[in-house]
């Protein structure tokens, strides 16, 4: 996703949404953005992910669903190596981003995290002004002119559908915004560093229904430009916004496929039980 002259609104019309229905994992090797190969993860010796293998398609929304503690958030955090901070975590297997192993010693973790942005469950704007929040990632890169930063901040806020609400008070504290606005600000902040992948960890679970709708709309708007990975508790949400859905249970990948297929014709009884609410999460 790039900012130069390509605002999301313009590209939305070009997005081809029609081909989704027929796709039974019908994306090629070249369309794979993230390739997870035999990934196992353990917290302090306790296994959290067990030998997962799945491919996440480029410029699509992939949802991870499953009961609490199934490992879906753990998997998400593995994708931008946030687990590196925890000394108790051990890992086996590999993750490839555009064919490159993200655990390669030549990969700078900070660069990886810039390319694979993340939005958390609770909105976490920094205690600074709205403008400074969005400019935070840009300033880390350094060497950008004041005007360039201004442009990118405006573009990012527009992309996150927040510009109209905050354009008059960019210098106000980010903490003065409502929860929904804060979450969109966090998305704008992440978009400002032009990531290729956006990880969303239950981004709407702390928000009211209207804010949730706005976030979902935003996800749809961003899809043509970004690979999105969404963790959610909300089955309807997964059905509404995602193209592919992976169902995880007890750290295992139970079923993975196009969202329509998974929700209408689940192959396994376990999946069906979960999505129809018979399995208590």
């Amino acid at each position: 996703m790039s900012i130069d002259g390509r605002l999301p609104q313009r590209q939305l019309s070009q997005a081809s949404l029609g081909s989704r229905r027929g796709a039974v994992m019908a994306f090629s090797e070249a369309d794979t953005c993230l390739d997870i190969q035999g990934l196992s993860l353990a917290y302090a010796g306790k296994p959290a992910l067990k030998d997962l293998t799945l491919r996440i398609p480029r410029h699509r929304v992939t949802a991870f669903i499953g009961p609490s503690g199934c490992g879906k958030s753990t998997l998400l955090r593995a994708l931008n190596r946030l687990h590196d901070l925890n000394e108790d975590v051990s890992r086996r297997g590999s993750i490839y981003l555009d064919g490159h192993d993200i655990h390669d010693s030549r990969v700078a973790v900070s660069e990886l995290r810039r390319r694979v942005g993340m939005v958390f469950q609770a909105p976490n704007p920094f205690p600074m002004s709205i403008y400074d929040n969005v400019a935070f990632g840009l300033r880390l890169q350094g060497g950008l002119s004041k005007r360039r930063i201004d442009d990118v901040v405006e573009w990012a806020l527009k992309s996150a559908a927040l510009w109209e609400e905050v354009k008059g008070r960019l210098r106000a504290s980010a903490w003065s915004l409502s929860g929904g606005q804060q979450q969109r600000l966090v998305i704008a902040r992440t978009l400002a560093v032009e990531p290729e992948v956006l990880l969303l960890d239950e981004p709407a679970s702390a928000l009211d229904p209207i804010s949730t709708l706005k976030i979902e709309e935003l996800i749809r708007t961003l899809k043509p430009h970004l690979t999105l990975v969404l963790v959610t508790h909300n089955m309807q949400q997964a059905a509404r916004v995602s193209d592919y859905t992976a169902f995880l249970h007890n750290g295992e990948l139970v079923e993975y496929g196009p969202t329509d297929t998974l929700f209408t014709h689940p192959r396994l009884r376990r999946t069906e039980n979960y999505i129809t609410g018979r399995m208590v999460g």
Partner: peptide, 10 residues
């Protein structure tokens, strides 16, 4: 808050 900064490439 820390994770937010780290996730931006800090």
């Amino acid at each position: 808050q820390r994770e937010g900064a780290l996730a931006l490439g800090a």
